[in-house]
Amino acid sequence: MTMSGDDSVEAETGRGLLRRLAYQPSRPHLMIGALFLLLGLLITVVVIAPSGDEDEWRNARTEDLVQVLDDLSARQARLEEESSRLAELRRDLESGSTAEALAEARRQLEALRVMSGTTPVSGAGVQITIDDPEGQIDAAVLINAVQELRDAGAEAIQVGETRVTVDSWFADSEEGVTIEGTSLGRSFDLVAIGEPETISAAMSIPGGLAESVRTRGAEFRTTSDPNLTISVTVPVTAAP
């Protein structure tokens, strides 16, 4: 920017010039007018161009579009897979005998029973022991533990002598953590039925349960067992 010192003088003449130009147009102004016409046209075109939904992609770049397309085809493949699975199930249910429908209903019932904790579960799983001599483990850690076990695909979980279901709760008390009112003491035994490798891996990832327990000065052990049984059940209650 090269600003001269005599700005004030220029400003006077500048304003006079403006006034003169406004009232006495000359020939070169036509060209300038034409250029401004072009500018106005451009602005209008850009401003009013986006109309309709398909124009959303009009200004997108090639690589963005490729990315969007990839996402969409991956999603479509997933949805198609699920669609064909469901269609097959529907065909089986419609054309097949009542026995088949019954089997499917039983299968669902079994899954729901496992989830609600009204039936004993056995299978491969993981036993987790947390020794906490200093009392550093609170309810939040155990809630986190249950959450991580569920995320890792555990079908059924037992903490101490209590089956964990959808409405289980943990609380901090004077004697330590309690589950549904039962004190758990200074040592926690968790049993989870589910893919043992997946669960063990999920527990030992950086920042996972094992690490957060150990940073609190407690001991964390897991044992995989191909034959675990959770025999504790919760009583069946009628729907409200």
């Binding site: 147009p25 401004f36 106005g40 046209l41």
Partner: peptide, 11 residues
């Protein structure tokens, strides 16, 4: 002046 007219006409 012409510039403003040109702009308006363009719009």
């Amino acid at each position: 002046m012409i510039a403003i007219i040109g702009l308006l006409v363009g719009v």
